[in-house]
Amino acid sequence: MEDSTPVVDVQGLHVGYRTASGPARALLDIDMTIQPNERVGLVGESGCGKSTLLKTIMGVLPPNGEVTEGRIFLGDDDLLEMSEEARRKTRWAEISMITQSALNALNPVKRIDAQILEAVRAHRRVSKADGKALVARLFEMVGVSPDRAHDYPFQFSGGMRQRAVIAMALALSPRLIVADEPTTALDVIVQDQIFTRLRKLQDERGFAMILVTHDIALVVENCQRICVMYAGMIVETGQTQDIVNKPRHPYTIGLLNAVSVLGSTREPIAIPGSPPNLFEKLGGCRFAPRCPLATQLCHTQVPPRVDLENDRVVRCHHWEKADDFAAKASSAETWAQAPAAQLENP
């Protein structure tokens, strides 16, 4: 798998927003590689820049957003260098998306089949009969009766809408599907059905997938590789097993710690403090204020990228102390040593 060309290769990406309160740096030096047929999980708290990363890959940044540095390769072509028309042709045909809230993502006043076929027709000619057959096939794939294809979104339940959105994402057999919190609005049973369905479809059709979520448990269950994002940076990436067994970044340790493990009596511990605002000038590690391991160095110097064995990357000055820290991480006192926590309870 390591030898093949990646589907999408993000290199050194920086993205900023111009806002009324000044420029905000939303993404900092993002590197991310997705191999064919791979499932990569992108985890982080809300506001960490997950959505900005997706929007940049899809090319739908709002007008005040701007890529200041970096490249996004789709195969051999840099998406950011393409003409607008060439870029448009790659959308959905090469990379499609399963959106966060299917209720708002489907246009409420257009029939679902029309909305799916519209995406197909933006890229190739389809006869009426072929179109109908295609929609029926897609609906069967995602497990909704094709009779319902001609309905309006409001006539669908939440789970059905999400399936319709998945059908739409599959319509052009793209190389990569980005799933942005695809099941947050759904109950656990439907959530499980949808993931089973997605994994099966992926085995059959061989697309790669990025699963974006704040729920690390979901990623551990479903993805081969994990990228952990914090305040606009990818702080750690690696194979799922490696990360779960031996997390190297204090934030990852905190995230894993915050999840309750089934059958364990351990209380989940939340990381004290909250993510920094993105307007601040970057003077060091953005996690430092919440990190019990933080030293003077962390507050003054941005941690460099450290490449470890087995495609592992971590951005922490003190990654070597991680094992030691992980052992103590399940106790609340450990976290109380973080600067932010001390500010809260002096």
């Binding site: 899809m58 739908v60 959905w92 959106t99 489907l106 409420p108 995406a119 739409m168």
Partner: peptide, 10 residues
């Protein structure tokens, strides 16, 4: 969202 999705659909 649906405008964004429409753009992403190409």
């Amino acid at each position: 969202d649906y405008i964004e999705l429409a753009k992403m659909k190409g």
